[in-house]
Amino acid sequence: MNGGFHIVVCGSIVPDPLQTLAPVDGPTGPALKNEMMLPSVLDPWAGHSLYEAANLAKNIPGSKVWLVSLGPKAKLQQLMMSIAQKVTFELVVLDGPAGGFTDSFEVAAALAGAIDKIPGLDRSRLLLFGGCASASRDAGVTMQMVGEQLGITEQFLGVDELKVQDNGSFRILERIEGGQYQVSECSGAPAVLGWATGNLPEPPNNPQIGMMNMRTVMPALQKAVPAPVGVGGVSYLGVELPSQRRETRIVKDMSADDIAAEIVAWIKG
């Protein structure tokens, strides 16, 4: 592989999965209660794609990784305190809402615009990475839309493995139905890869990497471009927590055979 890849990872923040989430009506549409106060994490699928990107860049000389993040600047700055210690990247910040109720069409347009303006980015060597879906909107459409806007037609979703061959082509495993993988061969960059979990563990914190990243992270945060994405054309008629359903029947002194027979009858319908 001559010259390496230019890998752009799209990833932002989501509320910590252990937090209690409640919808509220915001001025521009639905939002989360105390959204700015909720602890946040890097979107898990996007995190996997970032680690895969860093690993790929490490193994292919001449490669470089950019992380393009759309989210509230202050929260992204907090996130960088941990993520920037894990892998080497250059940060591009879009200062805007990161909630799940934003319109994927507007988010994709903002991301594509930011990627288009990255100085020195070689589009012929571009691998566009991201999660196969966010943990907020969970639509699984943004990466394909960004790719389409950038004119990248080779798109892969639910990727768990990317193996680069000596000639620059790569072999990709994508999750499909039935717990199986679709195996594809792509002749080379540019391509869009929406990652599932990949194969790599979360890298440990490395303060040296953190120090190196911080030289570019802080300036990137300072010159963050406002990205006023919103609900787009969506009219939300209601957002609610699902009502709890617990249909429990307590039965004492029932034999194991009777229990088994009842379960079998239930399964058979």
Partner: peptide, 15 residues
């Protein structure tokens, strides 16, 4: 559903 099936929304569009 949103937020990994933690809340459900009813919505419409004109586009």
């Amino acid at each position: 559903w949103y937020y990994r099936q933690r809340m459900v929304a009813t919505q419409t569009r004109v586009q």
